[in-house]
């Protein structure tokens, strides 16, 4: 029997579904060292993919900002000012320059279109529990911000085991577990189930067959957000994985846009 989902049928027919204004809660921006991007991974190229897949918004952490925050944020700020309804930003924290953090957070407060923080502990080789992250996490808690973290199974820097502690200590911040603690599924799903302020984010995890079903069953589709590292991975591929998972169209709506609308206040 062919997939009876209305949304699947519409994606087959049109490459998108009118009723699904997709939001990517995990995107990047611009070129990066380890990958060739058609169109340098910049706005025009990303918009082509977004338009074709019915994606209304992408929340981006520019690659440059993961290395040198001020340079990268300036790049994205320009894109946001040109396309304020299509792009939003995560403010990137590099914990290896702790003395710059306070000024950076002040700049964040003055920067329109940046809606949360992005932490990339695995790449920065600093555990998320390091004191170098503390001011950023306290800031997120105080201002009730969404925080997208890279989380990878068994990582000593950002594995799901560390997140229970961080989430419990900052109950007013909302933590999106980027990649859903890839590979350490049991623990990652358990952390998301136990903490109201922890969500699973699907980037890369979507291509593990059957994992979306498990997330929905064990944690609930209200706690799962769509993302695909745009411009890295094609939204058609990622959305196709969500649409063929054995979940309901209501679950798919929650994952592909409703949860992000609620979290970022775009309802």
């Amino acid at each position: 029997m062919s997939n009876p989902s209305q949304l699947w049928q519409q994606y087959l027919a049109h490459g998108k579904a009118e009723a699904v204004p997709v939001i990517s809660a995990h995107a990047h921006y611009g070129p990066y060292m380890g990958i060739y991007f058609p169109g340098r991974g910049e706005a025009d190229s990303m918009l082509k993919m977004m338009d074709r897949a019915g994606m209304v918004r992408a929340v981006c952490a520019p690659h440059a900002a993961l290395i040198e925050p001020s340079r990268g944020h300036a790049l994205l700020a320009e894109v946001i000012s040109t396309h304020p309804n299509r792009f939003a930003g995560y403010w990137c924290i590099n914990p290896n320059y702790p003395s710059a953090l306070e000024a950076s957070l002040e700049e964040f407060a003055r920067s329109p279109g940046f809606v949360g923080l992005k932490l990339l502990s695995d790449y920065h080789r600093q555990p998320i529990t390091s004191p170098n992250y503390a001011p950023a996490l306290e800031y997120a808690d105080e201002h009730e911000l969404p925080v997208l973290m890279h989380t990878w199974g068994h990582s000593p820097f950002d594995g799901p085991a560390l997140w229970s502690e961080v989430a419990a200590r900052h109950p007013r911040a909302t933590f999106l577990m980027g990649h859903s603690g890839y590979g350490e599924w049991d623990l990652a799903l358990d952390v998301a189930r136990r903490h109201d302020n922890v969500y699973l984010e699907l980037c890369a995890a979507y291509h593990v067959n059957g994992i979306i079903e498990r997330m929905v069953r064990q944690v609930g589709s209200q706690k799962v957000l769509y993302g695909e590292d745009l411009p890295w991975f094609d939204p058609q591929y990622a959305i196709g994985c969500v649409l063929c998972a054995r979940i309901s169209d209501e679950d798919r709506h929650n994952i592909l846009h409703r949860n992000a609308e609620r979290l970022f206040g775009w309802g």
């Binding site: 087959l12 897949a53 979507y206 067959n209 591929y237």
Partner: peptide, 16 residues
């Protein structure tokens, strides 16, 4: 079975 089929399917059918 490593990958859900719908991903590669939409990726090709909806490619530009």
């Amino acid at each position: 079975p490593e990958v859900p089929m719908g991903g590669p399917v939409l990726n090709l059918l909806n490619a530009d």
